[in-house]
């Protein structure tokens, strides 16, 4: 049994509860990026006891709308209180709203407007180099986000400065709010595009597989002289047939029947993983 793989389904249920409590959320991308964030937070050098440690690894959720998963993972790692998030999400005056901000413990940068995070990560990685610190910087982006030109400004700078302490992850779930990424704006050969900007590119066949992600992050750490990007092939809405691969679930509030079915699917997959 893979403990983290099981945990991913426990946290999916927490994300579902957060979203239902708050009256809606970006559930499709939350589900596709769950294993990416969970895997990272179980290997990064971060701790709620050392929030300002200059040697901590840095994480930027450039696709900030998937904050519900970040909340669930941060709560699991002890940075924030899950019950408080569930009770407060999107409520009047709440600290917990629909995009990350850095007054919440464990969140480094405010995000939500797409296309900023990679260049922010470039700055963090440059700072590590200037200060001869060994921390690594991770940036998670969406595949729809890659249409933002500023992403490629950041990609260019990371390649130019050969930032091997920077690792980007593309949550390649193939869907965005209006349809497939191919219908909306062709992302083309992402492997070739990042490689052309001077990146080491790792295609993760199943970006919802914790072991495959860990292997890829290991390879990224071993890669010297260039930044690494993981093209993590994921499933939007991963975890329940009710929402998998459905663009209409990009942002959604499940009704009572949907909640019951999704919750049941999560429990069934969790149980199956427990017996693997």
């Amino acid at each position: 049994m893979n403990r983290l793989a099981v945990k991913a389904y426990e946290l999916r249920q927490n994300v579902l509860d957060i979203i239902v409590s708050g009256g809606g959320g970006h559930i499709g991308g939350d589900m596709s990026s769950m294993e990416i964030m969970l895997t990272l937070y179980n290997r990064m050098n971060v701790s709620p006891d050392r929030l300002k440690d200059p040697d901590r690894d840095r994480f930027v959720l450039s696709k900030g709308h998937c904050v519900e998963t970040l909340y669930a993972v941060l709560a699991d790692k002890g940075f924030i209180d899950l019950d408080e998030v569930k009770a407060q999400f999107s409520r009047f005056g709440s600290e917990y709203f629909g995009h990350p901000h850095n007054t919440i413990p464990g969140i480094e940068m405010n995000s939500g407007s797409l296309g900023h995070g990679l260049s922010v990560g470039v700055g963090m990685a440059l700072a590590a180099r200037m200060d001869a610190r060994a921390y690594r910087t991770y940036v998670v982006m969406g595949d729809g986000e890659l249409a933002e030109g500023s992403v490629w400004e950041g990609a260019m700078a990371a390649g130019h400065y050969k930032l091997d302490n920077l690792c980007a992850v593309v949550d390649r779930n193939h869907l965005q709010i209006s349809g497939t990424t191919e219908q909306v704006m062709t992302p083309g050969d992402l492997h070739a595009r990042f490689a052309a900007f001077g990146w080491h590119v790792i295609d993760v066949a199943d970006g919802n597989d914790v072991d495959q992600l860990n292997e890829a992050f290991d390879e990224a750490e071993r890669t010297k002289g260039m930044p690494t990007v993981l093209i993590a092939n994921t499933v939007k809405g991963k975890g329940s047939a009710v929402m998998e691969n459905k663009a209409s679930w990009h942002h959604h509030l499940p009704d009572a029947e949907e909640y019951r079915r999704i919750s049941g699917d999560f429990a069934a997959r969790k149980e199956a993983l427990e017996h693997e």
């Binding site: 850095n102 480094e108 940068m109 260049s119 700055g123 700072a127 910087t137 260019m156 130019h160």
Partner: peptide, 28 residues
């Protein structure tokens, strides 16, 4: 030279990268 970063003609990246540096204690 070690306290100077050339970003090329890319003003968006210029500002985001400056913010990343500043978040790590730099006066950018």
């Amino acid at each position: 030279p070690s306290q100077f970063v050339e970003m090329g003609i890319a003003e968006q990246s210029l500002v985001s990268t400056a913010a990343g540096l500043a978040s790590c204690g730099k006066r950018a």
